[in-house]
Design a protein around this nucleic acid. Structure first.
Lengths: 188, 188
DNA sequence: GTCTATATTCGGATAGAC
DNA sequence: GTCTATCCGAATATAGAC
């Protein structure tokens, strides 16, 4: 694999585990097996490399989500498929995690992929809900945008509860709870 | 105010804003207007001071939540009151935020207040739901523990969405979405 | 493209005077 | 109790040789 790619992948990994403030250039170099000079040859510095890593994570997350959301099944089934898909619960969301970091939020380059990805995800799920309502599969009363925000928040917040508890169980409870509430609106 | 209290309050503030890794002893001293030696006289070091700050934040959060949850009204009204109460949305949750920090999760002293507070909150909301069901105010089918986890996750995840977006709106959408789904289960 | 040397500041603390 | 001095390693680079 190319040196750049090894650097980007290592940065993705470390950002996920330690956050932006907690990830040092030195640690990235060690993890990637790449020297100091080499890193600064390919990237101008930590923010540049982190931005590349976040853009790649954003792409990957989007592809994974789209896989479930554009698959077969009713609106409810596709949303349930998305919420119930295999996840590394205790590690949390590589993208959502960054929203807590003030240095990420303060830097437009770093914040853009985070903002865009979560906005896209809310919009995409709102579409699926609206499709379900148009098809008569879902009751017409829940607002698609509000409901989509609630569902994504359940995932992001579920990670918080799981990490706090030291076990994945609260995440799964939250997802079951959300699907339980939503399923009351399934018409057929 | 006593020096200890100024240190604890400053630490609460900085942990909220910058997280544990992002908060240095030096910054705490500056914020509190307290000298180096003074800080190390009252606390053994950063983890000790952070633990004191987190315990205090945990108490405060609990008191604020209990105020709404044990107030007057039906189960649904009390839960809605809790979800809709005034919040500093873009700053997020002082306690939930810590769950992302690996150094907090790794240290039992630091993690305990986070774990206990969120577990208490889930339990307390589950109780309110169960009371509502017993009183015939809420449909009996939603599982109290799962539903409570979903509601708390909506709050925690709502903060993530809001910070990512740079505006409080997604938080409010998520709360409206959750209350919309829950309200379908209100019987009277 | 990669390596080693060097620089500067900060993080997190200890020691001892007042 | 509080202050100042000092310490050592890490964070984040830049410079220049190979």
């Amino acid at each position: 694999m190319a040196t750049q790619d090894r650097l980007i992948e290592s940065t993705q990994e470390l950002l996920w585990e330690r956050g932006y403030v907690g990830t040092s250039p030195k640690a990235i170099q060690r993890h990637a097996g790449v020297g100091q000079g080499s890193m600064y040859h390919h990237f101008t510095g930590k923010p540049d490399l982190a931005a590349a890593a976040l853009r790649r994570s954003a792409e990957e997350l989007r592809a994974l989500a789209e896989e479930r959301l554009s698959g077969p099944g009713t609106a409810y089934q596709r949303i349930a498929g998305y919420l119930l898909r295999e996840r590394d619960v205790l590690r949390g969301c590589r993208i959502g995690r960054m929203a807590q970091d003030p240095d990420v939020i303060a830097d437009a380059q770093l914040r853009a992929p985070v903002e865009e990805t979560l906005a896209w995800l809310r919009g995409r799920i709102a579409e699926v809900i609206a499709e379900g309502q148009a098809a008569g599969e879902l009751a017409p009363d829940p607002d698609p945008a509000d409901t989509a925000a609630a569902l994504i928040a359940v995932v992001q917040g579920g990670y918080v509860l799981a990490r706090a508890a030291g076990t994945a169980e609260p995440f799964h409870q939250a997802v079951r709870g959300a699907l339980g509430l939503l399923s009351a609106h399934v018409l057929r």
